[in-house]
């Protein structure tokens, strides 16, 4: 069995003379739940765009399950990667069910039916509602159900809980944790470092287009690393429930 779901080797990217990614290399093991963190504009979304082939690299620097991404046709990509973006909806009003069915368009080998995806994400009450009539949190749940229905090996989420209330934030992270327990490789761009500490066992911390630190979350999200990357002061402590928690203090931004 191939252990590496994603392998990136010396990936460099620049837009109009500005270098976004500088020779970055990292691997994501199959079945891991990895957070990608870093300040705004550091290149997190750019990495995702390379992974879904929205941006292309001529060199062989990205591998999905040991296969060069350049050898994978766009139409076959949905078997490898599903994607959920931030506020990922449009002004055209599909029903939730229609949206979830779109997961099947990409991967007709998916073994998860629309109804199963609806059950996994627990949104049967939203099934026949129109996307533009439900809340942002519910839209995000519908998008995750679409990605579940796609049944790709890796699920990538770009800031899936930004602008959501705490209930939906926790609900979404719990769903992702449950999916990960069923051996789904999950990569999630997140800004809330406490959420990362609670839910993501692995973390990739980016700074100025470089990988600052990569590894187990408790090793990566140390106060000195956070201070170095985000330029803010913080301390880490254990709550009564044994949960690691970051507290930010004396920050004059």
């Amino acid at each position: 069995m191939i252990s590496q779901a994603i392998k990136i080797n010396n990936l460099t990217c620049s837009y109009s003379n500005k270098i976004i990614l500088k020779n970055i290399s990292f691997t994501v093991e199959n079945g891991n739940f990895t957070a990608i963190c870093g300040p705004n504009g550091v290149g997190k979304t750019t990495i995702i765009k390379y992974l879904v082939k929205e941006l292309n690299t001529k060199s062989s620097s990205i591998f999905l399950f040991d296969k060069d991404i350049n050898q994978i046709k766009q139409k076959d990509l949905p078997k490898y990667i599903s994607y959920v973006g931030q506020n990922d909806f449009n002004k055209y009003s599909f029903t939730v069910k229609e949206l979830i069915e779109m997961g099947k368009y990409g991967n007709n080998e998916s073994k998860i039916s629309t109804d199963e995806a609806i059950q996994i994400v627990d949104i049967s009450h939203l099934k026949n509602k129109f996307i533009n009539s439900i809340s942002s949190g519910e839209i995000q749940l519908a998008q995750i159900a679409r990605a579940v229905c796609q049944d790709a090996k890796i699920m990538i989420l770009d800031e899936p809980i930004s602008n959501l209330d705490p209930y939906h934030q926790i609900k979404i992270m719990e769903i992702l944790r449950a999916l990960n327990k069923n051996n789904k490789t999950i990569i999630c761009v997140l800004h809330d470092l406490n959420i990362v500490l609670k839910y993501c066992p692995y973390c990739l911390l980016l700074k100025n287009g470089n990988i600052f630190k990569n590894g187990k979350t408790e090793d990566v999200l140390k106060p000195n690393n956070i201070s170095n990357v985000y330029n803010i002061n913080c301390e880490i402590f254990k709550t009564n429930h044994g949960q690691l928690q970051l507290a930010f203090y004396n920050n004059q931004c």
Binding site: Q74, N90, G106
Partner: peptide
């Protein structure tokens, strides 16, 4: 009609 990156991830 979906987000650009979503469309790419769905194979087009």
């Amino acid at each position: 009609l979906l987000n650009e990156t979503t469309a790419f991830s769905l194979g087009i």
